[in-house]
């Protein structure tokens, strides 16, 4: 899919005429057939999501609907239009569902300030089915392309963007932090690149939405690159102490540093019996 868009772009960019004269026609034919085929398969017009993966079939959507009715509808309503216990899911897109269900935040265990991350309740296939079902209701942000999830972007740019846009809640090293009313920004360690991207795109819980005009897909990829860099490379200074900053350092020095030395003073002044 991504390859197709890039070749499309470059083809239009430089019309060198090196291609076979019929190439454009063939491409058009293929394009029309794919679109038509997809249209036939996906009866609802709304499902024509610009980046919907070719695996989307009516049966996946149906499977997703069954799962939705059984697990989500009690709060979000049978038509996913929301109830007083849960918001509407019309237009949240597959990215939001993939993030919320894929990280185990949904279904929520209980009513609490924010949905907590927990072991995912569904298999990957089921998560996809749910995501496709919700995406089929109305267009919305889709699950991101693989090309942005490789963590091979510009770490410096990512780090700077992270400090400016994310660090005030998630801490400079992504260790997380407190928000108001019992809510919090979770740690970003061990979060899949796909989920990081989806969180930026959909703004789950208290997080603001960082749309593509705010942080372009490349910027998001850079941020993922930075987060994966500090996660995958050993900490230069030794044990990180949770990356929590001076509080952890002070506590460590009082308890272990001074504690050890007080033990030594007791030993030095101990009388032999």
């Amino acid at each position: 899919m991504s390859k197709k868009t890039t070749s499309d772009r470059s083809g239009r960019g430089r019309n060198t005429g090196r291609r076979h004269p019929l190439a454009t026609v063939a491409l058009l034919a293929i394009g029309l057939m794919t679109t038509g085929g997809a249209y036939a398969a996906v009866t609802t017009a709304a499902a024509a999501d610009e980046t919907a993966s070719p695996a989307v079939t009516q049966s996946t959507i149906d499977e997703g609907q069954v799962l939705f009715d059984a697990n989500c509808a009690s709060c979000h309503g049978l038509d996913a239009a929301g109830t007083e216990n849960g918001p509407t899911l019309i237009g949240v897109g597959s990215a939001a569902v993939d993030f919320q269900v894929g990280t185990g935040r949904m279904p929520m265990a209980r009513n609490q300030p924010q949905a907590e991350q927990k072991p995912a309740q569904f298999t990957d296939e089921q998560v996809t089915a749910l995501a496709e079902y919700v995406a089929s209701l109305a267009p919305g942000p889709a699950i991101p392309d693989e090309e942005y999830l490789q963590a091979d972007g510009d770490a410096t740019n990512g780090a700077e963007l992270f400090r400016i846009n994310c660090a005030m809640c998630h801490n400079v090293a992504g260790a997380g932090g407190a928000l108001t009313q019992g809510k919090y920004a979770p740690t970003l360690r061990g979060v899949l690149p796909q989920h990081i991207y989806e969180a930026m795109q959909t703004g789950p819980q208290n997080m603001p939405v960082f749309n593509d005009l705010n942080l372009s897909p490349e910027d998001k990829a850079d941020i993922i690159t930075y987060l994966k860099y500090i996660e995958d490379n050993p900490a230069p200074g030794g044990f990180r102490l949770g990356d929590l900053g001076p509080v952890a350092e002070g506590l460590f020095m009082w308890i272990f540093g001074l504690g050890a030395l007080v033990a030594v003073t007791v030993w030095l002044t101990a009388k032999s019996h």
């Binding site: 400090r163 400016i164 932090g177 230069p236 200074g237 990180r240 900053g245 350092e249």
Partner: peptide, 28 residues
Amino acid sequence: AFFTINPIWNYGPYDPSPVSAGTQPDWY
């Protein structure tokens, strides 16, 4: 030798706009 203190590389250069969560002074 074993425990990180003040990992300045995490914080980045000073810029008046960002503030990190968990910004604290040293204990004293």
